[in-house]
């Protein structure tokens, strides 16, 4: 789903308009609206951003200023799955660099990149609040802890069907 449809589906438009109406000012729904778009398309494309902006009564520049500010809004296509590997201190102490190196080798990409088959994007993320199970990573919406290079690699493999 890394390529975007040219327009937002009507239900999504309605949900965004609804979010905007529920707020004291429509712009307060900026992040939730972008998140909705991203949930559906994986990322926020230029046309989607512009359309979302107009639903919120904002200029595209204004909304993009917000979208590019926050870590969790993707303005570039991502894979079907996103691995966010914690790079903060507890996970680092507990060996996240080794986990990352293995993931990179296995996926053939560096952090910030997507596998050529469009399956997986690997991203660093700040502390996931799972430090007692460091190293930790978030795969899509699921948190995984107590990783080592092998468990991380096995997890990554399950994301790619068929496995390479």
């Amino acid at each position: 789903m890394s390529t975007a449809d040219p327009t937002l589906p009507p239900e999504l438009r309605d949900r965004i308009t609804g979010l905007a109406r529920a707020e004291h000012r429509p712009r307060a729904a900026a992040i939730s609206a972008l998140t909705l778009v991203q949930d559906q398309f994986g990322w926020v494309s230029d046309p989607h951003l512009a359309e979302t902006a107009s639903l919120l009564g904002m200029s595209p520049a204004d909304l993009d200023g917000i979208a590019t500010y926050f870590n969790l809004i993707f303005r570039r296509p991502v894979g079907r799955h996103v691995i966010m590997l914690c790079d903060s201190v507890s996970c680092w102490i507990m060996g996240r660099d080794a986990v990352c190196a293995r993931l990179q080798a296995r996926l053939g990409i560096r952090p910030g990149e997507t596998t050529p088959d469009g399956a997986v994007t690997l991203l660093p993320i700040v502390c996931l609040g799972h430090c007692d199970h460091a190293p930790a990573m978030l795969v899509d919406r699921t948190l995984h802890g107590d990783l080592d290079a092998e468990t991380a690699e096995r997890l990554a493999d399950t994301l790619r069907t068929p496995a390479p």
């Binding site: 201190v89 507890s90 700040v126 502390c127 609040g129 799972h130 430090c131 007692d132």
Partner: peptide, 11 residues
């Protein structure tokens, strides 16, 4: 917003 590295109490 618990984001302070090393902190996992609010979660």
């Amino acid at each position: 917003d618990e984001m302070e590295p090393g902190t996992f109490k609010d979660r």
